[in-house]
């Protein structure tokens, strides 16, 4: 079964753009969308149950029902070494420090689509 890239963002318009762009350029992966931490947790549980590989998680920092960085941290407790990208438009130095300490790539919005694709490719190849 094709490995998954999990996209987590509560702005569904943005996630559709990202998912379409990634699906067109990375045909070997299935793009899984989640609009909240709860959705993302359910998606991961389903992938784990089916034994499907999760190759990368890409998440917004501020989500309606939680914190993207905390979600990534909790996910990594179960999937050590899972590549992760966190993006945000606004975050304090504590978030920057925490992301850096956890080895999570932090991107600042606005982000060009080409940059997105390049960052995702780099994370998958790392």
């Amino acid at each position: 079964m094709a490995a998954r890239i999990l996209l987590v963002d509560d702005e569904t318009d943005l996630i559709e753009v990202l998912a379409d762009a990634l699906a067109a350029r990375l045909p070997g992966f299935v793009i899984q969308r989640a609009s909240s931490v709860a959705d993302a947790e359910a998606a991961v549980a389903s992938l784990d149950a089916s034994g499907t590989e999760l190759a990368l998680v890409v998440s917004d920092h501020r989500l309606g029902d939680g914190d993207g960085l905390k979600f990534i941290a909790s996910l990594r407790a179960r999937h050590p070494g899972l590549p992760a990208i966190l993006y945000t438009g606004q975050a304090g130095p504590e978030v920057v420090a925490a992301a850096s300490a956890a080895g999570v790539r932090l991107l600042w919005k606005p982000i060009r689509l080409a940059t997105w694709i390049a960052e995702v490719r780099a994370a998958l190849e790392a």
Binding site: E11, D13, L14, E16, V17, L18, A21, K109, P110, I111, R112, L113, A114, W116, I117
Partner: peptide, 15 residues
Amino acid sequence: IRPGLTVDQNAKIDG
């Protein structure tokens, strides 16, 4: 044009 635009700009175009 799309890759040079931000994700938000692409979403606005799609809208």
